[in-house]
Design a binder for these strands. Sequence first.
DNA 1: GTGGTCTAGACCACG
DNA 2: GTGGTCTAGACCACC
Lengths: 117, 117, 117, 117
Amino acid sequence: MHIHLDTGDGRVPIYQQIVQQVKYLVASGRLLPGEELPPIRVLAERLVINPNTVARAYRELEQCGLVSKRSTTGTFVADGVASRVASDALEALTPPADALVAAARRHRVEQEELLEI
Amino acid sequence: MHIHLDTGDGRVPIYQQIVQQVKYLVASGRLLPGEELPPIRVLAERLVINPNTVARAYRELEQCGLVSKRSTTGTFVADGVASRVASDALEALTPPADALVAAARRHRVEQEELLEI
Amino acid sequence: MHIHLDTGDGRVPIYQQIVQQVKYLVASGRLLPGEELPPIRVLAERLVINPNTVARAYRELEQCGLVSKRSTTGTFVADGVASRVASDALEALTPPADALVAAARRHRVEQEELLEI
Amino acid sequence: MHIHLDTGDGRVPIYQQIVQQVKYLVASGRLLPGEELPPIRVLAERLVINPNTVARAYRELEQCGLVSKRSTTGTFVADGVASRVASDALEALTPPADALVAAARRHRVEQEELLEI
DNA sequence: GTGGTCTAGACCACG
DNA sequence: GTGGTCTAGACCACC
């Protein structure tokens, strides 16, 4: 499982970057239901961050139902979540898209110009 | 000058909302060079927010050169800024657009699907 | 707002004790919608625990929709939640009650005996 | 000897579930004094859990005096324990019952309502 | 002053 | 070895 952190102080909390990317990995089928995520400490070490930060990400993923933690055994992708996550992903994409379009309108930016970008 | 605030804790700082909207007003010609902005306290009262917040927005606008404060007289839209703001706006639009496209790619969302949104 | 912590290592995490008791306070009307909770640091100091622990409790309460945090302003009881919490409370009561009864049955404890307790 | 495990991470440690259920079996006469319990490895295999976990359960049962391990021979139900276990069970029932009642009071739940559940 | 994030590291229960 | 909880204290953005 490969995760890339943008530490550029881009105002996105590390733990959310993890949450988001795990969602992506599941939605795109690169993480399959039942598959085990790296142990908290291992992922923390690999990303050179504090275990607490990974733990928080995993906790949020569990609250979303995307992952299930069997204590003392590990953390696993929950069953039958691929579809839900997929629609989730699209929904997550919609608001920023709308905002972008709205912003563009306020700027009177031509549609073609926007598409080029 | 009409400004609408989204206080829904939607992750956009109030002062930035003000900055952005003043830029829009200038770029779209609804605020003309030389025109006076509302006094800090007046705008703060109208928006039911802390005067410090308005002050900060005005300060940022001044640093952008979009506005000039003549002490004890008021805050005025600077001269000949319309064009600069316009290009500013486009630049401001590019990064989120890129991010959106990048996110979409990670989701393997088809381009057509994205354009529809 | 009075909160009592059982530090007797009774296996209930501190942050959950806070969550639970705030729920009780709301459900019983001792905390009214719109009312402000003590700032994280203040409550932490009062309970002689780490601010992070209080923060976690508040975060969970927010995720439950019971509370809303207006950053830099404070933490407030959400509107129109009394009823939901009340039913929540009853639901929270049901499983342990069932477990108790089931356990009693396995012990062949007479019903009267149980009621006396 | 039939034992059912709730692996739903419902906050009850596996080894305690075993301890409890063995107590029930003894108290209810389905396990008689002198009778042999399944070997650790056998029970572990049957329940698909770690042998260490079964070992721990047996150890606790031995500390309670409910069971006695004769090395290299097996684990047997101790003599004359049925009555003790029975009272044990009642004691084990009291604290959760109290907690339940206390919780109910905090919720202002009527007693009749509680009894129905 | 508010809450938010993160670190470093401790201790625990469980398997 | 797994995850869970908690502490102590840092720095940040915002109002």
